[in-house]
């Protein structure tokens, strides 16, 4: 018998908002995030991002939209081990054809913003701490100036201090870049650091609360 991961969800997220999807395991929070990220299929309904209805796009068009407009931070970092820090961050630029002087300069500036500039540009992921690798992953998501950054449990592999530092970094990005961010977390204290918490249970939104 098929199980609906999310049901009857109607949600609007504004530009520049930092929203957390929260809920217990199996609540549908990651599914909702992945559907917005066009990684998981939507069986019914529509998703509109920057006035564009994206659910009706073909697979190739969705991939292209994802490449151009969405930045994804994975639960398990997922950096390329054979690329150094700078090369990992620049990968979306290569895919977009923006790996030029300007693109490289922006990437370097971003990494400086994350305190990962200078000599560390040539470091490889296995030479960095968990927190530093997470910063690289966020920088990679941010480098293409996406409409939305979607982060699926980005603190799952970090200790508490690292987790808090990551959320604070995302908040700083939101403020400094006006970036729209959607975060999935199961930690209430981390969710409380965002602007808005959307709580899901059994695939439905049970609470939608602003934190200020």
């Amino acid at each position: 018998m098929p199980v609906n991961a999310i049901v009857d969800i109607s949600l609007e997220i504004h530009k520049g908002e930092f929203t957390a999807f929260m809920g217990a395991s199996g609540s549908g929070k990651s599914t909702l995030l992945n559907q917005i990220a066009l990684i998981e299929k939507v069986d019914s309904g529509s998703i509109i991002i920057e006035k564009k209805e994206v659910t009706k796009l073909s697979e190739a068009e969705q991939a292209r939209f994802r490449l151009n407009n969405l930045g994804y931070v994975f639960q398990f970092l997922n950096l390329f081990e054979e690329l150094n820090l700078f090369e990992n961050v620049c990968l979306p630029l290569r895919l977009l054809g923006r790996y030029n002087k300007q693109g490289k300069k922006y990437a370097q500036e971003l990494l400086g913003y994350f305190d990962l500039g200078g000599e560390r540009l040539r470091s490889y992921p296995n030479e960095l701490s968990g927190g530093q690798q997470q910063k690289v992953a966020i920088a990679r998501a941010l480098v293409k100036k996406p409409a939305i950054i979607l982060a699926d449990e980005p603190t799952a592999n970090l200790d508490w201090n690292g987790s808090v530092a990551t959320i604070e970094l995302l908040k700083r990005i939101q403020k400094d870049f006006g970036q729209t961010i959607i975060l999935v977390t199961h930690e209430p204290e981390l969710g409380a650091m965002t602007d808005r918490i959307v709580e899901l249970r059994d695939g439905k939104i049970v609470k939608d609360k602003r934190n200020f």
Partner: peptide
């Protein structure tokens, strides 16, 4: 496989 997954998540199509 992992590389393929990352690239797809970043925004490349299956056929490519």
């Amino acid at each position: 496989r992992r590389h393929i997954g990352i690239l797809r998540a970043l925004g490349t199509s299956k056929n490519f």
